[in-house]
């Protein structure tokens, strides 16, 4: 039983390390700031999530597990806030995202506020 739990937690920790490395690799490899945010969110969700789940299995049942789950909840609730603020600040500064296809304003009238991400007319 303990061997099975150990194996599962090692697998989860290895998986978490892998996704952490992939996210950081993407952070260096991607061409511009919006695509880099997508790479960083792999680290923030999958890497952190699998590492914390693996450590939870190692910690057993107690206060340490509860603290690890608080840490996971902190990442789940604050990660998107930071990413959204960063994306909006980029648009406000006038950084144009590199786009292969632009579907903004195809069906709806254009808004003139640059901060909602729409193309100003």
């Amino acid at each position: 039983m303990t061997l099975a739990v150990d194996l599962a937690s090692w697998g989860l920790i290895l998986l978490g390390s892998f996704f952490t490395l992939v996210g950081a690799f993407g952070l260096v490899r991607m061409p511009e700031v919006f695509t880099r945010m997508h790479a960083a969110s792999v680290t923030d969700t999958l890497g952190v999530g699998f590492l914390i789940l693996g450590m939870t299995l190692q910690a057993g049942f107690g206060l340490v597990t509860l603290k690890l789950l608080f840490l996971l909840a902190l990442f789940v609730f604050t990660g998107p806030v930071v990413t959204h603020a960063l994306a909006q600040a980029c648009l406000h500064e006038g950084i144009k995202p590199l786009l292969a296809e632009d579907r903004r304003g195809m069906t709806r009238p254009r808004s003139t506020d640059p901060d909602d991400g729409r193309q100003p007319s």
Partner: peptide, 16 residues
Amino acid sequence: ANSITLTPGTITVGVS
């Protein structure tokens, strides 16, 4: 909006 941002590959950049 936060679920879209949390999912890797999509980011909500603006709300109106």
